[in-house]
Nucleic acid binder design. Sequence first.
RNA 1: GUGGCUAUAGCUCAACUGGUUAGAGCGCUGGUUUGUGGUACCAGAGGUUGUGGGUUCGAGCCCCAUUAGCCACCCCA
Length: 424
Amino acid sequence: MTDKIQAIRGMHDILPQQTPRWQLVETVLRKLMATYGYAEIRLPIVERTELFRRSIGEVTDIVEKEMYTFDDRNGDSLTLRPEGTAGCVRACLEHGLLHNQVHRLWYVGPMFRHERPQKGRYRQFHQLGVEAYGMPGPDIDAELILLTRRIWRELGISEALELQLNSLGSLDERLAYRHHLVDYFGHYRERLDEDSRRRLETNPLRILDSKHPALHEIIEGAPVLKDFLGEQSNSHLQGLMEMLDAAGICFAVNPRLVRGLDYYSQTVFEWVSPRLGAQGTVCAGGRYDGLVEQLGGKPTHAIGFALGMERLITLLDEETEEASGRAHCYMICAGARAEREGALLAERLRDAIPHLKLIVNCGGGSFKSQFRRADKSNADYALILGDDEVSNQAVGIKSLRRDEDQVVVAQAELVSHLRTVLTL
RNA sequence: GUGGCUAUAGCUCAACUGGUUAGAGCGCUGGUUUGUGGUACCAGAGGUUGUGGGUUCGAGCCCCAUUAGCCACCCCA
């Protein structure tokens, strides 16, 4: 017991009871990505540390204290990816996908951040990432949001999610605003809490988001980003809102919506669920027109979002019944001869009926206990193989779910019989 | 990283203010029926009470440490 090995804190096993939900979500996502013309890209889980430092931002929490970083044997500093966009841009640059081209890409997989675990927040978690390159928007901005809405619809959780929207403006506009904000909050330095004083240096826009009650009044009087947006930024946002209106999407403009990663600009959005407690953001993203250039490419329009799979699946747990992947048949083999012949018969059935889901009893047991297992397996039919059946080259077939008579079928006719009753 | 709550069988939970061999339901295995599941009945297996120390005649219960989970902050998907 003392040397019991357990999973790393914040990294969880996804057990068989949960995997059908994951598969359902993955199937829906895969299908919808294809219908919008997005192509899958598969990326390494480890990248050079430098990539994340340069893209996410040196002073962000992620880079400062949340990355799993280690030295490779040759001395390179590597990092388990804390998010997907940086690696995606790196791959596109490396393979020349961004030379005046348009790309719609997606990926799923684990991300790693060393945070204090909590519901909806894990050290290894999974994201769907969607990225679109080469399009200035706001049409593509709207497309991504429409795509996410369709995901919620398809999964039956539309009611659980609310869309928030904001514009961070261009880099210049945001920098100008940032200066004014630092100025403003600087006057109230004494009244700021410790966190906010720190953020004054690192990410002053974050102060606007503070939940500290004493700051409410100060925040109310703070300069508003919207006033710093130029005509281009304003019309971009305006255009997006018009498209969302036309598509019947409800949203709230949240002037305090600020994304945590440095590379965002212009459109940012977030789908939030009030049911998930403090970690309510299920899906969030925005435009990052400057990042490609920042990583050594030509200036390239880009926008993307990330969707937290665990959070999405938590919502699903509350909304939907479990879809169990039940077997068609459970083969009961009583006696040594039946066990030998049963295994071979099962293989012949699998050859003949590729979609057949068939469980063969292993580990012996009385007829009674084997029937119990057959029932527990949720299979529709029990295939019964005992001494009598083996001697007669036959199989007993009993429905476990419907009130049908048990029949005995010659093994030679078993395939066609099963095809008929199972409609395969 | 900060603060608070929690940890007993595979799961959900009991065990009065510290007092005999830590119980129940579900699940699992076997049986009632030596070839028939689901309902019923009977029996069995399964615990160093998260881990390590301490206090005490005696600790599941009190104290300390540690690990993990939950909640909030922070952060974010």
